[in-house]
């Protein structure tokens, strides 16, 4: 099993390295990641949402649906732990 795991990990790593070859350089301000969608956030988020912290603006407004999903994930985890572990005590409801 360990050998398989090692091979799998190495293969995955090799693939990922292979993919990085054509990636934009590190910190390149003109990379597609920084030039396609995000400039508009930086330019107009503060103005449109009155929130200087652009991350907060994007998190809770532009992509607030994601954030809702994130909250639901926490809720799910909480309820999941309750479902799995919490036991009923005598004489109590719930």
């Amino acid at each position: 099993m360990k050998v398989i795991a090692l091979i799998a990990a190495l293969m995955t790593g090799a693939l990922l390295i292979y993919g990085t070859e054509e990636m934009p350089d590190w910190g390149d301000p003109n990379s597609p990641a920084s030039s396609h969608v995000s400039p508009k956030y930086i330019q107009e988020a503060t103005e449109k949402t009155a929130t200087p912290n652009i991350v907060t603006a994007v998190l809770a407004d532009y992509r607030s649906y994601d954030t809702m999903g994130e909250v639901v994930v926490v809720f799910t985890a909480g309820i999941g732990c309750i479902l799995m572990l919490r036991k009923k005590r005598k004489g109590e409801g719930d």
Binding site: K48, T56, D61, T67, V71, F75, C81
Partner: peptide, 28 residues
């Protein structure tokens, strides 16, 4: 309005995360 909306939402996030974390911790 958007700013206030964000605030309200953040409060919701905070409450859930707090309770969720406590709940997970207590259970474990």
């Amino acid at each position: 309005a958007r700013s206030l909306g964000i605030l309200g939402v953040e409060v919701g996030v905070g409450v859930t995360v707090m309770a969720g974390m406590i709940s997970i911790f207590l259970d474990i």
